[in-house]
């Protein structure tokens, strides 16, 4: 099976000093890959570089053998990549419904939002509320729902557990697993919360100071005490 996302030798960052050094990884269709590491390891930078929000200095990004290295941010979603940025990126001045419509706007005809409301009944209840009226968990649901409205093949998810209660985090992780199983959605999941990320991930990649220091099956990372101590600190 050929990889969905393939990243080779990616070096990227802000200005002259790169944050990421020579990062290579692959994501298979229907695979959840967790990107782990301490604060400042370059996890969010990796996602931002992948979606074109940051200039890439070296390396190559391809999606099903199509070169996306120099893609414009606004064309990303047409290739089937949806990026949920850190801090969720709900447009707080727009209503829940408008945020969701925005996700599917580039598709013609525009997709129905009913499947999203079925996935997140809470959002259906809050359809006409504006983004700033939502709780943290609801905003995270909205951001993920909006990304799904674009019907992506690959979801780039940045810190979905940030500021959420453990119960809500668990719900979101369960949802990712369910989506992967039902629709074959692939996810590149950036997380500080190692345990919950590895609870759904197939693969785990550990970044440190912008370099990949180890990669393993999620199960191996969880079970191997030595690996855990060395790279994940628990």
């Amino acid at each position: 099976m050929s990889a969905l996302l393939e990243v080779e030798g990616l070096t990227a960052g802000y200005g002259a000093a790169p944050v990421l050094h020579d990062v290579s990884l692959t994501v298979q269709p229907g695979e959840i890959v967790a990107v782990l590491g301490a604060n400042g390891a370059g996890k969010s930078t990796l996602l931002r570089a992948l979606s074109g929000l940051l200039p890439i200095q070296k390396g190559r990004i391809s999606l099903e053998d199509r070169d996306l290295t120099k893609i414009k941010v606004e064309h990303l979603v047409r290739h089937g990549i949806a990026h949920v940025p850190e801090g969720r990126g709900v447009v707080t001045e727009l209503t829940v419904e408008e945020n969701l419509r925005l996700g599917g706007l580039w598709r013609k005809p525009q997709p129905s939002l009913e499947p999203i409301y079925e996935l997140f009944p809470r959002l259906a209840e809050r359809r006409t509320n504006e983004g700033h009226q939502l709780s943290g968990g609801e905003r995270q649901m909205l951001a993920i729902g909006r990304a799904l409205a674009a019907q992506p093949r690959l979801l780039l998810l940045d810190e979905p557990s940030l500021g959420l209660a453990p119960k809500v985090t668990a719900q979101i992780m369960a949802l990712l697993r369910d989506l992967r199983d039902r629709t074959g959605l692939a996810v590149l999941l950036v997380e500080q919360n190692v345990r919950s990320a590895l609870s759904v991930a197939d693969q785990g990649i550990v970044l440190s100071l912008g370099r990949i220091v180890t990669r393993h099956d999620a199960a191996t990372l969880v079970d191997d005490a030595e690996l855990r101590h060395a790279y994940l600190g628990f």
Partner: peptide, 24 residues
């Protein structure tokens, strides 16, 4: 209209709008 929604989103949150495919 979809264009009006795009215009509002682009004004309020340009980066997020780009990620959603809006030509800001």
């Amino acid at each position: 209209t979809p264009t009006g929604l795009r215009m509002r989103a682009a004004a309020f949150a340009p980066d997020v709008s780009r990620l959603l495919g809006v030509p800001v």
